[in-house]
Write a protein that binds this DNA or RNA. Sequence first.
DNA 1: CGAAAAGTTGACTTTCGTCAAAGTCGGTGG
DNA 2: CCACCGACTTTGACGAAAGTCAACTTTTCG
Lengths: 259, 259
Amino acid sequence: MTAIVRGKSDRSGPGSRSRPARETRCERCALYARCLPLGLEVEALSSFDAIIEHPHPLKRGQRLMHQSQTFESLFVVRSGSLKQVVEQPGQRDQVTHFYLPGEVVGFDGIAESRCYGSVVALESTFVCELPFHRLDDLAEQVPELRGELFRCMSRELCNDQRMMCLLSGRTADQRLASFMLGLSERFRSRGCSPYCFHLSMSRSDIGSYLGLALETVSRVLARFQEQRLVSVDGRELCIEDHVSLVALAEEGAGRHSGP
Amino acid sequence: MTAIVRGKSDRSGPGSRSRPARETRCERCALYARCLPLGLEVEALSSFDAIIEHPHPLKRGQRLMHQSQTFESLFVVRSGSLKQVVEQPGQRDQVTHFYLPGEVVGFDGIAESRCYGSVVALESTFVCELPFHRLDDLAEQVPELRGELFRCMSRELCNDQRMMCLLSGRTADQRLASFMLGLSERFRSRGCSPYCFHLSMSRSDIGSYLGLALETVSRVLARFQEQRLVSVDGRELCIEDHVSLVALAEEGAGRHSGP
DNA sequence: CGAAAAGTTGACTTTCGTCAAAGTCGGTGG
DNA sequence: CCACCGACTTTGACGAAAGTCAACTTTTCG
């Protein structure tokens, strides 16, 4: 199985372009305002443009990278969405992250020069590829880029920590509430509706991510709907009562929360 | 409350040295082989030495940094140990990390320029302080240092992901087993006994970290002792049956692990 | 020495996972 | 166009793992 999809016949090696150059101008990208190269000078920006590669789009279920494969590039989601899955021998696969447009995938591969988990498209997905050695070279000359890379990784550390708090101390209801609010916020900051959106992941993915059985996810969503907190129709979700949802997510009474 | 302890009267501002220069030679440090500057050229190493500061030692319970305080420096543990605690309004404090000698504390502060959680000494602890802006400057000139910083952050991302898998999919027994094996490995790689060691954290800290009630920690440890997997005497721990402990930790039958 | 903090143990309760069965959706091919 | 297939989802019944509450013991430290 090929991991990085570069073309129908996968003939082109790293370094090749599968798309015309005009698409590689970050300035013109709708995501520019919330993507990695934000804040670069004109000159630095064009150097950045120059290292970007554009693999062919991924179809639902296709892998962007395969666990333990040699790490070479970071990827930025341009459209669509992805999940990261960690496969452990003899254990159920564990979903560790969902990635939306503008988010950077692959930082965890730097440490050991191999991808920590597999990354799979949840729907048709376009990505930009950033060969890491070239990015690192550029980071030497462009302090702003270096800073942005550090900030980006740091932000991911914060997110992971939030997740650890969620998994370790909160009830099923609170996890789901936080999850939906988190997604809502991410959509909002991308200019999409924070109230109604499409879940590209299955109940089972959500369950794995939140440390819950998929049946529990389904039941909690049904109950939230009864309580008029949200309305759910398959994978279409509308947040009906944002205030109560926030209250629930932040409620003091999680697990292990004695007086 | 002062967060970074620089001296009895906390009179010295950032940039001051509280310790004589001879102590700042990384080359002579016992941790050199597994610390950040590993692999730097002689010249780069002395530039690195030059930016290190040495705050006064922390006593048990003292804070190295305070949640939300402005981020300025990374710290490396030189001796002793620390815990990171995330305090959420109205919720129980959540322990997110333990830090042992040679480990870097504070990467999560880069993103927002403020410390993500509080960091507290679990025993008498010495640290080296690395003002981040100086480190970043140096990272421009020294590619090896830059690479090491990226790798270090990436490693932390991998560790957090391992933790998320643990919290999300494993039983109390498996969490404790993994926790002890993880500590064991970290002690081993520091040249300490991987079989018998001292737990500098309380049962309650362990519980918080692993998403378990402290009573559960106590009970599981007692049972492990009955089963001759470990022997515990207060905070002294000996691993008696490493093989079974590994088998338990990796066992396919966690939670949500259907056929 | 004594108070406070940390740890242990038991009894009881709750949440959530497991198993099972039925229902829905989406895509494919006749 | 419609029927069929597989993947996904919902719902119910039941049980087990772990949380909560409470009492008591041990350790730590001023």
